[in-house]
Write a protein that binds this DNA or RNA. Sequence first.
DNA 1: GTGAAAGCGCTAACAT
DNA 2: ATGTTAGCGCTTTCAC
Lengths: 352, 352
Amino acid sequence: MVVRKEGACELPMRLRGGARARTTLSDVARKAGVSPITVSRALREPHKVSDKLRETILGVVDEIGYVPNFAARALASRHSGIIAVLGPVLGSPGFSPVASGIEDRFQAGELRTQFANIGLDASEEARQLNLFVAQNPAGIIMESVAEFPVNRPLIDEIDCPVVQMMDTSLEPLDMGIGVCHRSAAKLAVRHLLSKGYSKIALLGGNKDIRSRRRFEGYREALSDAGLYQPGYVFDTEGRNSVADGHSLMRCINSRYPEIDAVFCHDDELALGALFAASQLGLRVPEDLGICGYNGLHFSGVDDPPLTSVSLPLYEIGFKAAEMLMAALAGGERKEGAVELEVALVEGASTRR
Amino acid sequence: MVVRKEGACELPMRLRGGARARTTLSDVARKAGVSPITVSRALREPHKVSDKLRETILGVVDEIGYVPNFAARALASRHSGIIAVLGPVLGSPGFSPVASGIEDRFQAGELRTQFANIGLDASEEARQLNLFVAQNPAGIIMESVAEFPVNRPLIDEIDCPVVQMMDTSLEPLDMGIGVCHRSAAKLAVRHLLSKGYSKIALLGGNKDIRSRRRFEGYREALSDAGLYQPGYVFDTEGRNSVADGHSLMRCINSRYPEIDAVFCHDDELALGALFAASQLGLRVPEDLGICGYNGLHFSGVDDPPLTSVSLPLYEIGFKAAEMLMAALAGGERKEGAVELEVALVEGASTRR
DNA sequence: GTGAAAGCGCTAACAT
DNA sequence: ATGTTAGCGCTTTCAC
């Protein structure tokens, strides 16, 4: 694995030569009349320094505005103090609560989180993993996009704790947390069936493991009812935005006007489908039932309010961070993946 | 400025002690039969190494999977190779094209970009600036939230190039690029006036400099026409989402039913207003004209398609990165800020 | 509880 | 074009 890229430009001139000298640990030490290592301890392990000395030292730190050099710290300690968070679509509304959960747990600690987008591409996942691992992260939290075989050797070699936020059908390599997307999808489809819908389409991608599991749940629930129709499965190419749901819904309506319900891979798609239905003159929920996924709230923009499968997204992030902290603290690790509950939240978009 | 926080937990046990040894530059050097510095050069300044040697070295690098240790590199070179990008709302749709522009320009270079959210808060801006500066970034690109006086002393002390993406009414501290939000807003309001709308509301925040400039443009254009009404200015508290636009529009309609047009601080707000109008039975553009800001595309979700002030967002990001590269290369710096053009793109939401 | 010595992996500056 | 030397700022290890 090489980091260098073909055609990479070299560092510009101005970067050569050092920057202005900054205040260092030694500056603080000199001013406080102690040795550098004591200052280092006062900052990182305050209880190992006497109260009096600590007070003096922190006073000097404030006074001269000392800020530690992370590069030096990382080099000396052999870990960067960074928790790498790798996810397929970091900016998406569905990931946002997960990120909040992670950040909230690490709040005020010495660990910094760094997020990286891997898209829906196992090779990008491998590239990013390599990059991070080379920097000795303190830990890794990742939302796997692929079944593991692809990057398994890579992950096996990592010597920091790894938490995978995942579908619980898979065995985590180190630690895992997630939900069972298959049964979550079944929940949704059975809800639609119970409301009397019978021609139920699936809207969404099939590029990552979670989508495929949802598809399986969808297919099983419909097959059980003798209603599965392969032609009713529609993949989006894009990022599952509102616009994607909108255009896909219009296309579905023109090709398969008999479809009476859609189960969407996420809430944004569902919202787009809702708007399209409104433009097409379809009444929701009478003519068309719509069920989303994730359990996001659109506070009134969705009219009628959307039914959705609510996922504990914040909790997944928070607990992932917690598991990582526990592993770092040397606690026992749970075997297998932690499975969290999902719930169907019925809005008016399927209430008939 | 202290990085330490009250109550910050100490590093967990498992982090103490080194990680497993990795392959280093010296490993490559030994195997290739050259000195470490030659390997270093082969990777960073390939033209300074003979073709033959370079080939051998890169072969070994590939073979043993060497990846540079960024911490060591940063410590030795006194710069982290990181371009810090600070923005108020990094995840927002409006910032997304800016980020793409920045990343596209740095593509395949040795510089890595690191994004940080500063919210709409000058003190958070200061905190993040301090953190980054302490790590010797190669350069900084920031979208200033405040007028500069607050953080001016801080920025003046920075010894790497700084590009501000900004409102061009301000003088950049180092380099600047942006648009004139005041005249952009005037453009929008005059367009609405030209279409015969006369009771024109403003929807959006007033928490950052760009919003305030837009307000000024709005006020000037309406004052010129003798139509300015302070009561028609509505601030959002939140993050200017579709939902905010939606609820604000409903509130406006109930309190000021006479309002016949809205100019929104961004396109998402405008989209929300459009949905609300539809729910309220207001015809767009006949009963209500709607003009957005930024020039994003909703590909059919907005029906009728929204009129918007189109900003060269991608170009701002790309050129900001370019200016930074030029400065790093030691080129001349332009005086003052680079001003880019904006354009009013007329959709059907004001076409009457 | 505090300190001295050594070195993390790399690059700048100066040879050759 | 390649090598030698020194040191970036901090933390680990071991001593006291």
